[in-house]
Design a binder for these strands. Sequence first.
RNA 1: GGCCCUAUCGUCUAACGGUUAGGACGGAAGCUUUUCAAGCUUUAAAUCGGGGUUCGAUUCCCCGUAGGGUCACCA
Length: 443
Amino acid sequence: MNPEKVITRIAPSPTGQMHIGTVRTALFNYIFAKQNKGTYFVRIEDTDRERNKEEWVDAIWNDFEWCGLKPDAKYRQSEHIERHKELLQKLVAEDKAYISREPKKDDPTEEVEVVRLRNPNTTITFTDLIRGEVSFDTTEHGDFVIARSIDDPLYHFAVVVDDGDSCVTHVLRAEEHISNTPRQILILEALGYTRPTYAHFPLILAPDRTKLSKRKHAASVEQYRTQGFLPEAMINYLALLGWNPGGEREIFSLDELIKLFSFERMHKAGAVFDIEKFRWFNHEYLKLLPMQEFVDRLSLFMTERGDTVPPYLPQIGVELRNRAQTFGEAADYLKGGEFSFMEDTIPAPTGELLLQGAKADAAAVKTNLTKVVELLLEHEPFTAESVKEAIFPYATEQGRASVLWPMRVALSGKEKSPDPFTLAGLLGRKKTLERIEKALRML
RNA sequence: GGCCCUAUCGUCUAACGGUUAGGACGGAAGCUUUUCAAGCUUUAAAUCGGGGUUCGAUUCCCCGUAGGGUCACCA
């Protein structure tokens, strides 16, 4: 019955590829808003004209769309520049801030007129949903700069104004911002806005336990998309970095996360991003996909990557997906000839390879292969299971290695491949028999 | 360095004073259609240290130690 509607936001800056930490913060903002039937929006923080680039603005929209985190609204901070100027002037007029003529910081030969806030030098205490009460002495900040000039606001000022005007109720962001919070509260109080509720999420760490950075580590959404990770797996994995619903289940859909999320179960310490576990999650999600969808999405991935999609992809889908944890790996397997046995043009295996794992001599292998042909000549139906039924008793009798190894090599032409029955099922009777006959001539 | 935050297997974590400290990833071993992968089974592996509080501490308090974040005319 609380009349106050929850409003959350994510505020990325368009200075490069989107960081997966940004996605996680967006995710929790999204989840919390949805859980409370509130609103979640994206605001692009583009007040730094020198570092921003249009291409990164587009990348942000694309990345969020790919992740499945659709905002209820979106806008750019630069659209509000007039409002920022207005409030900057108001603050100066009220003597809560003042214009200070001083040498430019990175070029002391030049003089600038920055705007500084009159710091009341108080101790600011705020409640953090994750960390409880947090206090900072703000005297150390002095009269800090809030604008490069009277019409060029800086981050802290712009954030406070935009959050205030957008009636953001919950500022949920990463821990790196926690020591910025008191400064923003000081600005907020000077401006007279209502203070939102804060929460600071633990950081995502690299294996060396420092903040995961795009410079040093694989940390951008784009990289993982390019490697063929599924957005649903990424969402799930990211949600479980620093949070869990208790119990032993790990696979959760976005809807389930919305139902289960709570700040009480949020960790306070940073969590190391483990690519191996992420790959495991991805594999789990790959296996959850209906085969047709797996094939379609992989085909799309390969096409975008410039790879040729082999016509036999649907047939080997199950085998391929067992092996590959990501679409990227699947594409690599295909490209690397892992499934070359599906091609009609493969050369016959050498006699040496046919005997390599057979634990028997050429004469015995020849006999066994001949027998296999005989057993399969009219066997019905010709599926992996039924081929196994036809061959297995004989193989067991003769020593499985002496039958199964050469049969598998004859069918695949390779040292490593799926088992002979799967191969036969995939190839069909005609090709199966042809390849065994061909192998027989190599002995 | 100042300020702030944090601390359970290598990693992600469960336990909200009483458990043989559980699960997952990864590792190791074994099984299978004597290859590869997947799958299944088994297994090693942790409460940072020291003081308290308590009949009893992973859990509460204090002090260390270690790690991280932040200290812009970036966001």
